[in-house]
Simulated scan of single mutants.
Amino acid sequence: MRVDLFDFELPQERIALRPVSPRDAAKMLVADKDSDLLDVHVRDLPSFLNRGDVLVFNDTRVIPAQLEGVRGEAKIGATLHKRIDLRRWQAFIRNAKRLKEGDRIAFPSEVFAMAERRHNDGSFTLAFEGDEPVETLLERAGRMPLPPYIAGKRPTDERDKSDYQTIFAKEDGAVAAPTAALHFTDALLRALDDRGVVRETLTLHVGAGTFLPVKADDTDDHAMHAEWGRIDADTAARLNAARVAGNRVIAVGTTSLRLLESAADEHDVIQPFAGDTSIFITPGYRFKAIDGLMTNFHLPKSTLFMLVSALMGRDRMQAVYAQAIESNYRFYSYGDSSLLLP
């Protein structure tokens, strides 16, 4: 399928550089298959859900995975994007031409790593020195890995340490936030509880590959980066029981959706899951595990815009995005939200 079919014009001023406050004051565009689009706010979410509906959140926690260091006189930037083991991470490297296998990189606060292996995509495996957990080293030497469309407009600051974490963040390992859940507040969770909406969590450690542009002209030629995720047996059983009872399972974010679909078998049953997924969802895909999606507004020609087009239809999503742009919705990680109910 041609990638340019998923293009659209997005004014630069629509890119949100900060979240709104309170978080649930963000706008939300509600869309089903063919009814009029509704402009509401995230705090109105409970009124679109029924008692027994299930919202599925990603409880991954963003780690300060961006590092600035030196190899000799050369400045080296590293963005960790996938854990390999306790001391080794795969990382995208800035100024990679100045780095070769076996080089030692010095980061701030006495943090050191060896460039152990160069991968075919230009990334490296970095092996961190010492006995402290890598996460401890990153808290000392790293900074929050804001998306390039925000980091290119302003520097990271102290606010981002809280702004770029969801209320559900628990399991260390993500280098990008599951941004659909950034909109949730304690007040909104109480309102959902009062409505009888059920909450479940899973873990998908979002990688920096989520921001990589699709460089191929055809979707068949694009390779997704793998990300690690887990759904435990009890959670899978409750989700299956909810659907059997006629309740909807609505993924909060494309990360939750992708893991649920990775875990679902050919009989539409969600199985326990622990491992990597590189699922790439494009129009023509048959959804097996979810009945709706809450998600932010994504980049033109991105894998995530392809995913929502698979869920709702490409023409429908072009109309949704056209209205969002016309109505001054804020796009991307710190932007506004949509509720998609196919």
Rank of each mutant, 00 (worst) to 15 (best):
E101A: 14
A25N: 15
F297C: 05
G69F: 02
D4G: 10
E13N: 15
V30G: 03
F107V: 02
N50Q: 15
M28S: 06
V40A: 13
T303C: 07
L182D: 00
K27S: 11
T203W: 01
L5C: 11
I105S: 01
M144I: 15
A245N: 14
P22D: 09
A223T: 13
I63H: 00
I325A: 07
D59Y: 05
D103S: 09
Y149E: 04
T254E: 01
L259S: 04
T60Y: 03
P283K: 05
I15Y: 03
E266R: 14
L182W: 02
A264Y: 00
L138A: 05
R104K: 14
A216T: 13
I270A: 03
A16C: 08
H267G: 11
D36G: 13
L340I: 08
D276Q: 14
P178G: 04
R71M: 11
R2Y: 13
Q165K: 05
L138F: 06
F92K: 04
P272F: 06
A115E: 05
R118F: 06
T203P: 04
E13Y: 12
R190H: 14
T201R: 13
L10W: 08
A242R: 04
R14P: 06
L259A: 03
T179K: 00
R248S: 09
A241K: 15
D218F: 13
V252T: 06
L49W: 03
D160A: 05
D157H: 10
R199L: 11
F331D: 01
A74V: 10
A245I: 09
D265Y: 08
A187W: 07
I105E: 01
P342S: 10
S309F: 06
K82Y: 06
V197K: 00
P147D: 09
D103Q: 08
V269Y: 03
A216H: 10
K288M: 10
I290F: 08
A324M: 05
R43D: 12
H41T: 15
A191C: 10
R330K: 12
S337I: 03
D265M: 09
L80C: 05
P213E: 11
N296D: 09
M144T: 07
R330L: 07
W228V: 08
T201M: 12
T201N: 12
G102N: 10
R118N: 08
L138I: 08
